[in-house]
Amino acid sequence: MQHTLGAQPIDSARAALDAARVTLNGLILGKDAQVSLALSCLLARGHLLIEDLPGLGKTTLAQSLAHVLGLSFNRVQFTSDLLPADIVGVSVFRQSSGEFEFQPGPVFAELVLADEVNRATPKAQSALLEAMEEQQVSVDGTTRALPDPFFVVATQNPADQIGTFPLPESQLDRFLMRIEIGYPDEQSERELITGEDRRAMLAGIEPVANPDTVTVLQNAALGLRMNEPLVDYIQALVRYTRESPDVEIGLSPRGAQALAAAARAHAFVERHSGVFPDDVQAVFEAVAAHRLKPAASAALQSPEEIARQVLAAVAIP
């Protein structure tokens, strides 16, 4: 799909993005950074993995994103008996026409919330991951394109240990970012308690954008300028993860690309004139942590901690 990036569309799209951000921050209180990351992930054409305990607003975030940006939304609750066909859809024989007719699964939406993705079997998981990777699904030998933009928000409950299938590293790699939401601060929580129900609020909010706006924004974000010093910075970070004794497997070239794309999108969301070191630092943990494998000597440290150490250790060129 081609979009002309004339002055008018990009300016209005830009304004829509800013409006969306304000609205989202009004819905998900005290989580500016996470909202910004989620938007960045969407604009970088990546997929988002939210890993946190229940009740912290994972679903609300996904739903709000879809609603505010005017994207079609489907939710798939992953369970251990979920079949791939439950995700991608099935061909059904129609008596009336005498033909098979494809019944699209929930994956055919611009924003798909895959709830508790680690509860499903690897088979079901890989059906989703394949769809994320290819942005298309194959059913009964026919390849069907998924919508564009296509954004998957998967959630995982880290506390669940029994009867789950944690995503292997190779598949975690498919997610551009992995974020945690965390508890809200006192003030925000107070507002949540006293305020209106979030979902009810959402129903009263008009979308500020549509899928085309999102595509325009994506193109603009990924076209953002990245100067030499920043490329140097990304390379220094990546090199550090590969050389650090605390890391067994450092960032791959795909990881470096992901970092660059995420930083670009973040800079775009933050309205920076180029990609600043702050943008890299803002997205680094979300982009890098789930791609790092800590060394045995650093087994007590979480990948997030290691990512923070990398950031603290590498000087900004």
Binding site: R225, L230, H272
Partner: peptide, 9 residues
């Protein structure tokens, strides 16, 4: 500085 070094300034 940010504009000149990292941006399009």
């Amino acid at each position: 500085y940010l504009d000149a070094r990292y941006g399009d300034g």
